[in-house]
Design a protein around this nucleic acid. Structure first.
Length: 912
RNA sequence: GCCCAGUUGGCGCAGCGGUAGCGCGCUCCCUUGACAUGGGAGAGGCCAUAGGUUCGAAUCCUAUACUGGGCACCA
């Protein structure tokens, strides 16, 4: 027998072990044409999983298990991502705590430490995924930096190189001075910050007035190579083409006219620093201004800046000094407060330094059109579709992607330079040769190779190859994930069977960074989008909508929640709130609700088991063996509701509304099955053995086990446990629910009449219960009541189901009151189809009863008013659809009848 | 600045053309042979504002105001 309350811990541990032993989630290419494959968004190996991961993976698990239940060959591929900068940052923080730096350690030692960290971290993450119940095919575990994935990266790089889509060249990029690397446009964020606008006087060459520029970054003036004004700006017309003198350095720089300048902003004159600002870079190009780099990669002023006093200063320090010097020398006209957005690194939050830099670029602007075409052609969809437009826009104005990173943790760029050919472009940094030049397909002395080339170069230099020192952006390997996990670039059965996959589940924050990149890679190399649908979910936030972060102290640890409330409760709580297109404000309370639901499931199964014979006769409880004729109202009603709930859940799942699907099951189980059917079943279960008792048992078992199957994707552990207890009585002998068949709905149980009849009866019960509560009638006291039905149908309904009413409303008996005077000294429960008189001689406070009825009367009146406004409206009757009119009419009639009876009752009460 | 969401009882959210729903919280009653992680009964909302379409609007349209997000710009 089951315990009184559900205790998740031992049960989760048990099934975890059994699933694992059975290698339950293993998938092999089969003949099944219905495939459902998902590749996991590989978590970065930066630490433990957070609540966002719990949501992401629960959603995937629900889908996988759901499709498996419905007969699909499912495959869910687990894995982790090396995580590039993010992971390297974690390690650097560790080293810093030990008082070391990666440079002291050296590349090789550093990478060894990274490897060992990665091993531990993978173990943690995969263990957490397992604990979460994820039906991942553990035999397929992949890592973005393991050998097969490295091969894929090489192959992709080579492919792009051969098509001329990859080159090493000098362009403006985002440079993070903290992380010491270039970043793509998608790896930076904008942040509103309070700053200042400094107005600086640039005198004319002749020593005349010149002009005043406004800037937020005075320190970059050392690299100014021009000043731009709007061509039609009257104030500066005379200066265009002339030169002004740059304060502090004394350099002469030209004034140019450019449309990009907004004459109404600041002073209408812009200093142009092509090397340190994206716009200035464009202006500089248009006017052939030289580019002068004055801030180095470490964020310090370079000696080449022209003023030795500033050389070596950090950019922030330099700003202070320069502003002070300008002020002292009288060049600073004014400083105003100014709020503007600054570009920051998405990994460390430091202000980005735009730099012109020699980097590797992938010309994804040439890949995007085909991807866009696939999207517009419907070969790939995004759900919910409000992300479709931003996705399109991103693809439409895509720029070259900087793929090189100046870090150590990642796939080393597989390009080799011949030091014989390129000696002049090679310097030694920290004892290692580093290439500084450009590179593209067809250049001599440059090859793409998996290993160090053994042959000599075109010019006959032998064995003098050096490898590029940079590594690839972590997203470069992530972009290949749906291909590489199935063995690409080797073709093979796996790739043929599983590629393309069906869905990808991820958060919107990596839609461009990752989803779009995968689409581009898949279409480029395998001519097919890697998945036909991306399901985008929201971010898990705290209850007030704030992002969870360690610094805010509002983080909820999934593991802790699983310990405290059980894994199923956590999963269900997340799912119930994962409404498509919305973020999830999450509070611990919500897990409590789901924990309670798990307990409800547990106890309803416990109840059913308590009412079954000890030794089941096999197959005795098949639903199919029940005929409509042998069932009573409650049976026909619950089967009808059951069928409705199933089809609703299935529809919602098709729409990818997992929350609504879960809600439909929750509502059915609790509000229909437990609250009404189980209660009514007690009548027969407490009675004598016989066919009727067997029928109610069959329905209790079958409906419950069907629910356990359908809930299994959401709450895998508890359902597995309960199903196994119920299995001896069930027709489905599957060893695990993962292998079970979905509940059949071949037989049509839909029964609107039963639903109507039950609705009438429950309304009667409600009215009686309400009366009892309000008159403080002791719960244990059984009442003898008189009933006046509104018609023959209603009377028959009450007669036939007096057992239901007696049991649910705690009645001793029901007698019919056929006209004549009212039963004396009685309270009255009025519902649409009946009035119940509850004679309680001496027990009723008539004043109280009058108040109660008056209140009900006024409620009923306002209800009637609303319906009457509709049902009596000529326009409505003339134009509304017939079915609508029918409904309104019957609603009107029943409200009117009820009102009439309430009035009669009050009138009688007034006399007594 | 452009675009997209959101604005529904104390809190968090569903509903998205036909008498306002759920969970939590709150009030009262109940340890009745599944479950107090429970049962029963209640209180609480003119569905942001203003117009419009419609027989009928929380639901569709158009503005406005907040809130959040995406994109661009901010010298």
């Amino acid at each position: 027998m089951l315990d009184k309350a559900y205790d998740p811990k031992p049960i989760e541990a048990k099934w975890l072990e059994l699933w694992h032993e059975a290698r339950l989630f293993r998938s092999v290419p089969s003949g099944n044409p219905d495939k459902f494959t998902i590749v996991i968004p590989p978590p970065n190996v930066t630490g433990a999983l957070h609540l966002g991961h719990a949501l992401n993976n629960t959603l995937q698990d629900v889908l996988i298990r759901w499709y498996r239940l419905h007969g699909y060959e499912t495959c869910w591929v687990p894995g982790t991502d090396h995580g590039g900068i993010a992971t390297q940052n974690v390690m650097e923080r560790q080293l810093k705590a030990e008082g070391k730096s990666r440079h002291e350690l050296g590349r090789e030692k550093f990478l060894e430490r990274m490897q060992s960290w990665t091993r531990d971290c993978k173990k943690t993450i995969l263990g957490q995924l397992r604990r979460l119940g994820c039906a991942l095919d553990w035999d397929r575990e992949a890592f973005t930096m393991d050998e097969p994935r490295a091969k894929a990266v090489f192959k992709a790089f080579q492919g792009y190189w051969d098509s001329g889509l990859i080159e090493r060249t000098e362009l403006m990029i985002n440079w993070c001075v903290r992380c010491g690397t270039a970043l793509s446009d998608d790896e930076v964020e904008y942040e509103e910050r309070k700053g200042a606008l400094w107005h600086i006087h640039y005198p004319a060459e002749s020593g005349g007035k010149g002009l005043i520029v406004a800037t937020t970054r005075p320190e970059t003036m050392l690299g100014d190579t021009g000043v731009a004004v709007h061509p039609s700006d009257e104030r500066y017309r005379g200066l265009i083409g002339k030169k002004v003198r740059l304060p502090l350095t004394g350099r002469l720089i030209p004034v140019v006219a450019d449309d990009q300048v907004d004459p109404s902003f600041g002073t209408g004159a812009v200093k142009v620093t092509p090397a340190h600002d994206r716009n200035d870079y464009e202006i500089g190009r248009r006017h052939k201004l030289p580019s002068m780099t004055v801030i180095g990669r470490d964020g310090h002023i370079l000696p080449e800046c022209g003023v030795s006093a500033y050389a070596g200063l950090h950019r922030d320090e330099a700003r202070k000094r320069i502003v002070a010097d300008l002020e002292n020398l009288g060049f600073l006209e004014k400083k105003e407060d100014y709020k503007h957005s600054v570009v920051v690194c998405y990994r460390c939050g430091q202000t980005i330094e735009p730099l012109v830099s020699m980097q590797w670029f992938l010309h994804q602007e040439r890949l995007a059109p085909k991807t866009l075409e696939a999207f517009d052609g419907g070969r790939f969809r995004i759900s919910p579709d409000n992300w479709a437009k931003p996705y399109r826009d991103w693809l439409s104005k895509i720029r070259p992607w900087v793929i090189s990173r100046q870090i150590w943790w990642g796939h080393r760029i597989p390009v080799w330079y011949c030091s014989g050919c390129h000696g002049s472009d090679i310097t030694h940094v920290g004892g290692e040769p580093v290439y500084h030049g450009r590179a593209r397909k067809g250049d001599y002395g440059i090859v793409v190779s998996w290993e160090k080339p053994s042959r000599s170069c075109e010019n006959g230099h032998s064995a003098s190859w050096i490898q590029d020192g940079d590594v690839l952006d972590t997203w470069f390997s992530s972009a290949l994930w749906p291909m590489s996990v199935f063995g690409w670039p080797d073709g093979g059965e796996q790739l043929r069977y599983y590629y393309p996959t069906q869905v990808l589940v991820t958060g919107y924050e990596i839609l461009y960074l990752w989803v779009a990149r995968m689409q581009m890679s898949g279409i480029e190399f395998l001519k097919a989008p890697p998945f036909s649908q991306a399901i985008i979910h929201g971010i898990v936030r705290d209850k007030s909508g704030k992002k969870m972060s360690k610094s805010l102290g509002n983080v909820i640890d999934p593991l802790e929640m699983m310990e405290k409330y059980g894994t199923d409760a956590l999963r269900f709580a997340l799912i119930l709130q994962a409404h498509p297109g919305r973020d999830i404000p999450f509070a611990e309370d919500s897990i409590l609700g789901s924990r309670n639901f798990a307990n409800k499931l547990w106890n309803s199964t416990r109840f059913v088991l308590m009412n079954l014979p000890d030794s089941p006769s096999s197959g005795a409880y098949r639903l199919e063996s029940l005929s409509h004729g042998g069932l009573e109202l409650a049976d026909r009603w619950i089967l009808s509701e059951y069928q409705k709930a199933i089809s609703k859940a299935r529809d919602r799942m098709k729409e990818r509304n997992v929350a609504a699907a879960a809600d439909a099951l929750y509502e059915f189980l609790w509000d229909k099955y437990c609250d009404w059917y189980v209660e009514l079943a007690k009548i027969r279960l407490q009675g004598a053995d016989g066919p009727s008792k067997e029928a109610v048992r069959a329905i209790l078992i079958q409906v419950l086990s069907g629910m356990l199957k359908l809930l299994h994707p959401f709450m895998p552990y508890i359902t597995e446990e309960l199903f196994s207890a119920l299995k001896p009585y069930s027709e489905d002998g599957s060893d695990f629910l993962y292998r079970a068949r979905a509940p059949e709905t071949a037989f049509d149980w839909s029964n609107p009449q039963a639903e109507l009849a039950m609705a009438a009866l429950t309304e009667m019960v409600d009215s009686l219960r309400s009366l009892r509560a309000q008159l403080n009638i002791a719960p244990g006291l059984k009442l003898r009541v008189c009933a006046a039905a509104s018609g023959d149908g209603a009377r028959r309904l009450i007669e036939d189901h007096s057992g239901y009413l007696n049991f649910l409303a705690r009645l001793e008996s029901i007698e019919f009151w056929d006209g004549g005077t009212r039963p004396p000294q009685s309270a009255t429960a009025v519902s649409s189809q009946a009035t119940f008189f509850v004679p309680l001689k001496g027990l009723i406070d008539f004043a109280k009863e009058k108040i109660r009825l008056e209140k009900e009367l006024s409620k009923c009146q306002s209800e009637l008013q609303k319906i009457a406004a509709k049902a009596e409206n000529k326009e409505f009757l003339a134009r509304a659809p017939q079915a609508e009119i029918e409904t309104a009419r019957s609603q009107y009639e029943s409200a009117k009848a009820r009102l009439g009876r309430l009035k009669d009752t009050l009138a009688v009460l007034a006399q007594s």
